[in-house]
């Protein structure tokens, strides 16, 4: 195994072990943080009790819908914008500034328009994720090497053959990064929305536990959410790495 991986694993074990020790000996009070082992126990307890099944369904359902809308919609919009240089120039400043605006400032506005519930969360999360996918799609299509398009012309490909046989395969690595970002943003949108504004969902359950000084459940849920996102992202990253290994960085 590569030495960096060994050291990283040791560092993580050290942090987790140190935290465990500090909590067990009372150096860190349980009103601030609980031991990692207790967090894991809390996850198991909460999941097996089934108490939060409804919240889980809302959160993961909303993320699934929002991420799908963001990825598919962002791809289609990105493609259309790529086709029209004029539209591209027009909305370029908008795309550049989009993620600079703190999206949370608009949560209250959306609540006023759409009310509470899963609907506004999905709108919010889709809006947050879709632009990342648009930008990735544009980046991927822009960077298709010109020589590959010339090769397509030499082979007499039709516009749709050129798109599906050359442009899209060439843009795949960028599209995959877009998928990863759009998913992360959708997740952040749903959880942040639930955390601040909603009356249901895992994000709300965390905020609710905080308000009721229920650190045991709260830290279990926090670890659960973070663990879930890390697992999904690592899976996509692994996939990306495999593609890079096969295709090179072109």
């Amino acid at each position: 195994m590569n030495p960096a991986t060994v050291i990283r694993t040791l560092v993580i074990i050290g942090i987790v072990g140190g935290l465990e020790l500090a909590c067990r000996t009372g150096a860190l009070p349980h009103t601030v943080i609980i031991a990692p082992s207790a967090m894991v126990a809390s996850i198991i307890e909460t999941l097996s009790s089934g108490e939060l099944n409804g919240d889980m369904r809302q959160t993961f359902g909303a993320v699934a819908v929002a991420a799908t809308l963001a990825i598919c919609g962002g791809f289609v919009l990105g493609f259309l914008i790529h086709m029209s240089p004029r539209l591209r120039r027009a909305i370029d400043p908008l795309l550049g500034a989009y993620y600079a605006i703190p999206h949370v400032a608009f949560y209250p506005v959306l609540i006023v328009i759409f009310g509470l519930g899963a609907g506004p969360l999905i709108v919010l999360a889709t809006m947050l994720g879709i632009v990342a996918m648009i930008i990735a799609t544009l980046g991927g299509l822009d960077r298709v090497p010109r020589v590959l398009l010339r090769t397509a012309k030499v082979h007499g490909l039709s516009p749709s053959q050129e798109l599906f046989l050359v442009r899209l395969p060439a843009a795949t690595p960028h599209l995959l990064s877009g998928v990863k970002l759009a998913f992360s943003y959708s997740f952040i949108g749903v959880v942040a929305g639930e955390f601040i504004l909603s009356t249901a969902g895992v994000g709300h359950a965390i905020a609710f536990s905080y308000d009721n000084f229920d650190n045991y459940r709260m830290y279990g849920l926090i670890l659960f959410i973070i663990g879930f996102v890390v697992v999904v992202n690592t899976t996509i990253l692994f996939w990306e790495r495999r593609m890079v290994a096969r295709r090179g960085t072109r």
């Binding site: 990283r8 926090i222 959410i225 996102v229 890390v230």
Partner: peptide, 23 residues
């Protein structure tokens, strides 16, 4: 050693860590 840790931190919904910060 540190890069993958930071990359992972970049993509998690950090809003869930806010209670920890508050406490």
């Amino acid at each position: 050693v540190a890069e993958p840790i930071f990359t992972a931190l970049y993509s998690i919904p950090k809003v869930t860590l806010y209670p920890l910060i508050l406490l």
